[in-house]
Nucleic acid binder design. Structure first.
Length: 307
DNA sequence: CTTACGGCCTGGGTGC
DNA sequence: TGCACCCAGGCCGTAA
């Protein structure tokens, strides 16, 4: 399941290979996960790839017309700091291919002559004989070409990047909410990039039960959660993500953080910290793994049902 | 407004 | 061997 660390790993792999390459052709298999395939086929061929960045769980592949007679574009885009935001207003946004990997999406670089994996639905042929391929068994992913001015609409509502947020920002957001912390961690409008694996792993590390509500966390718990989240994400990036099913990086290699999971998919096994048996329960509609020994459940009774 | 929840996308794994 | 069905995770619509 590609979450922030997996997407970051893929982005780094693409960023090391793609900038400067020109896209010569785009070919599609199935397109039901592509917002406007015709626009992609029309606008991308001939463009040169610029930066590849991550925004939450989204990847952005920036492109610009490879016409050397117009060096102004490069100058305008070079100073771009964030991917979205009011700061981009007034300046020219480069075209950017927006990609979400969903559950089973893979973006890999391969020689055009290399065998094609099943469920590969998009091919971006490059000017060096290689191609970027998008493979997605379930096709829960998304792909869309964002043209000038469209980033705000596509990405503007997303929350803080958990690795960039300060403890104060994090506490303010969580402390103001009565929803369960598990739901808050997964809510992309609160934080962008956290999914089920890293929500569960961070909560275990922080010793916070997933059913606690944001506004009920004591200051030290809030601080532990903030730190646990960042530490977990950073370690997962260092280990190139979690490969629990289909995830691979841009070179097709699996990650290793699944070997460090403490609760995720460890139902029935012993807690590494206290020895209690890891449990699984549905919280916020999602399968949640936690240790009943060191993650204390909130007082029962979720909502007062007046009457 | 906030929160909770059901359903949808698809196909691999499971169990009969 | 075949086949029905559960389920994964993100997201969206709807209800309260």
């Amino acid at each position: 399941m590609p979450e922030l660390p997996e997407v970051e790993t893929v982005v780094r792999g693409l960023q090391a290979q793609l900038p400067g390459r020109r896209i010569v052709e785009v070919r599609f298999g199935k397109t039901d996960f592509v917002v406007n395939p015709a626009a992609i086929e029309q606008h991308l061929p001939g463009q040169r790839i610029g930066a590849v960045r991550r925004f939450g769980k989204f990847l952005l592949v920036e492109c610009s017309a490879a016409d050397p007679a117009r060096p102004r574009d490069a100058a305008a885009g070079a100073a771009t700091k964030g991917a979205v935001g009011p700061a981009t207003k007034g300046t020219m946004e480069k075209d950017a291919l927006l990609i979400h990997l969903g559950m089973t999406g893979q973006l890999t670089i391969a020689a055009a002559s290399a065998p094609v994996a099943p469920h590969t639905h998009v091919f971006f042929a490059l000017d060096d004989g290689r191609e970027v391929r998008y493979t997605d068994i379930r096709r829960f992913g998304r792909m869309e070409l964002l043209r000038n001015g469209e980033r705000e609409r596509a990405l503007g509502a997303l929350g803080l990047d958990p690795l960039e947020a300060s403890e104060e920002e994090f506490s303010a957001r969580f402390g103001a909410r009565h929803a369960r912390v598990k739901a808050l961690l997964l809510d992309q409008h609160v934080l962008r990039g956290v999914g089920n694996i890293y929500a569960d792993e961070s909560l275990w590390r922080a010793r916070v039960h997933p059913m606690r509500t944001g506004d009920a966390l004591r200051p030290e718990e809030m601080r532990r959660l903030y730190r646990a989240l960042q530490a977990t994400l950073r370690e997962a990036i260092r280990l190139r993500g979690s490969s629990v099913s289909d995830y691979v990086d841009a070179e097709g290699a699996r990650g290793e953080f699944q070997l460090r999971h403490r609760v995720y998919q460890r139902e029935g096994k012993k807690c590494f910290r206290c020895g209690a048996v890891i449990r699984r329960a549905i919280v916020a509609g999602r399968s949640s793994h936690f240790c009943p020994g060191c993650q204390r459940a909130p007082r029962r009774r979720r909502r007062s049902s007046k009457k």
